[in-house]
Write a protein that binds this DNA or RNA. Structure first.
Lengths: 360, 360
DNA sequence: TCACTTTTTGAAACCGATTACAGGTGACGA
DNA sequence: TCGTCACCTGTAATCGGTTTCAAAAAGTGA
């Protein structure tokens, strides 16, 4: 078992053969092997200038044989281009953001850019932290969700002159791809009002540091006010995300003691699903006793019973447009500051006129 | 409207004031402002060596005032560490992989590493392409899903000496964090057999280039064979992922004309959900007429009616362990080649003894 | 063949941080 | 006061590509 003790002389001799750092090949190695200069290697491999056919071939052959892979850091340093963009989203596990990132990445990938995504957990300080981390990495562009961020963040982005685009929002100052959250929520509310609902509630995720969520609730209030109605404070509940959250939210609303709403607008389809489950478990009929509207048109929304009416925010289209926008900015092309990709109400079976309305 | 023609002399004069490249500050700028050398700036900012208090302060102040942000590429080049790891997953929109990536990233982030994720769409050539792209970027480590990859890929990884770990699989040769897909599927099958089922079917996603999916089906076959049973070819269907896929799959199974199975094991909870919907729409009772098992324990699984029996593959735990593993390898620490994080059958209401069995 | 373009090419500078190394400083004991 | 040592600090080399510049080679027309 015991290793034989190495002979002393071996220890003294330089460990030539054994140690052999086995570094991976660099341009210089390729250049030597092909009998050209490193400049020529670079020219061949990047196609940046004409090179005589025989040398071209020699370089290709040498690179192939050595299994040469360019060092990205060195390239980024000399080109002053990192070929990567960053994105900070509130929650990487949320379907809307996944679709956003997925289409955003696809678009960038087409032009050779890499996406580095981070999540902030809906915390303004985390957005700053993660974005700074990405900026230090050297990203060439940045996508953020929403318009309200740490003031230091904007300063940092401007200082580094990093092209930035905000999504799911329309801001007065910065480049945005998105929609008017208040207006779209107001539209959904008007739809419910037109059906005859007057007691409308909302169950949303946490609204702290979340301008979109806040704007949506604001839009609902406005639409109600426009018809001389208002929402009871007990009908406005804020929960942590998810199906369980939806159940809790609705339970909480009922526990408040006031007369329950006849319609609820939920922050996500998951919350809407939870609300439906809780309502059903209490013997309520959907949509007869309670209409429910979700957000994002998740896979399962159309398959619930009844199928869920939901607001499709077109995450994938927004991601693609954000990619287009940043790619343009990064290559110095002109861009439109605001791109509106309107949210759309998909009416399915979970909404109907309220019973009271039918009776009247 | 027309711009006034610029005076000729202006054209000749160098555009000094206007142009001003406005480069962002680099170490040298900080050094000058603080009256020290760049070496000291580096030492202060990284805390790599003691520096006299007054200089330390001067550097911090200068860096702050200039809004200095270190250039990641330069740092990566000189440290020969990129501080990023890559991951290639089959489908970024699949819940299991999202959880995997999310926990993997959290773990890495704790040690200052960045995750760069790519997806392959279950295509072996895409895995090669994306992984190569990441390697060129200079990643310090790599996570792959499954054990079967393009031979060139392994060669490339070895050549560049990049620590790599495979997840959701247990391979004979390479470092893995995962479980035995065949064994866990066999266990689920045995559970159904113990309930009295004899006609068991499977609906899975595409199995091409997907060793995990293949192994699972294999495990089911083995468990059946162990009791002298076998699966009808008509009961083995392969579909594209999703709820719609599940519906199609079950419809296809019924359309084949043979007697339908009394239990079905599905590749994902989405597929299981689709199967349940389709079965229900045909007047079948679950679990009375059909038992259904899913995979991954999605959020909604517990909330379906009946709640879905499913195999929890512990994606988050696997992601965390994969992070631990790579972090250890990247800092030269010893690691265990195989870590088994066993999948677990969560029994809920969608499985029960078959009617025929009860009658008997 | 010669003068003059045009195309290819290599040497060396450069990107911006880290770090090996050598030199400088001050403290302390003799 | 001097030597020694511990501790700081700056100079310069380094990482591995890209790119500028000027020289060399090749092509062109007379």
């Amino acid at each position: 078992m015991a290793q034989p003790e190495p002979r002393k002389s071996e220890g003294v001799t330089k460990p030539a053969i054994i140690q052999e750092p086995a570094r991976f090949p660099v341009t210089k190695d390729v250049a030597e092997r092909a009998g050209v200069s490193t400049a020529t290697v670079s020219r061949v491999l990047n196609g940046t200038a004409r090179v005589r056919a025989d040398k071209h071939e020699a370089v290709m052959k040498a690179a192939e044989e050595l299994g040469f892979v360019a060092n990205g850091a060195a390239r980024a340093l000399s080109k002053r281009r990192f070929m990567a963009v960053g994105a900070v989203v509130p929650n990487i596990e949320n379907e809307a953001f996944i679709r956003l990132l997925s289409s955003f990445q696809d678009r960038l990938r087409q032009e050779g850019y890499t996406l580095i995504a981070a999540n902030s957990g809906y915390d303004i300080d985390n957005v700053l932290r993660e974005a700074t981390f990405l900026i230090e990495r050297g990203i060439d562009g940045l996508m953020l969700v929403g318009d309200i961020h740490h003031p230091l963040l904007h300063a940092r982005i401007e200082r580094q002159k990093i092209p930035m685009v905000q999504v799911f929002t329309l801001s007065a100052e910065r480049a945005c791809i998105g929609f008017d959250n208040a207006a779209s929520a107001a539209r959904a509310t008007s739809y419910l009002l037109d059906l005859g609902h007057t007691r409308i509630g909302v169950i949303s995720g946490l609204r702290k540091d979340n301008d979109r969520g806040g704007a949506r609730v604001e839009g609902i209030h406005q639409a109600l006010a426009a018809r001389g109605l208002r929402m009871l404070p007990e009908h406005d509940v804020e929960i942590s995300y998810g199906i369980g959250g939806g159940r809790d939210g609705f339970r909480q609303m009922l526990a408040s003691g006031v007369e329950p709403p006849t319609a609820i607008i939920c922050g996500t389809d998951q919350i809407a699903f939870g609300t439906m489950i809780e309502a059903r478990s209490r013997g309520l009929d959907i949509p007869g006793d309670l209409s429910v509207i979700g957000h994002n048109d998740s896979d399962f929304a159309a398959f619930l019973s009844p199928p869920l009416t939901t607001i499709n925010v077109h995450s994938a289209a927004i991601g693609r447009a954000a990619g287009d926008h940043l790619l343009a900015r990064m290559s110095g092309r002109a861009t439109i500051r605001l791109t509106e990709i309107d949210a759309e109400l998909i009416v399915r079976g979970s909404t109907a006129p309220p019973r009271s309305h039918l009776r009247a």
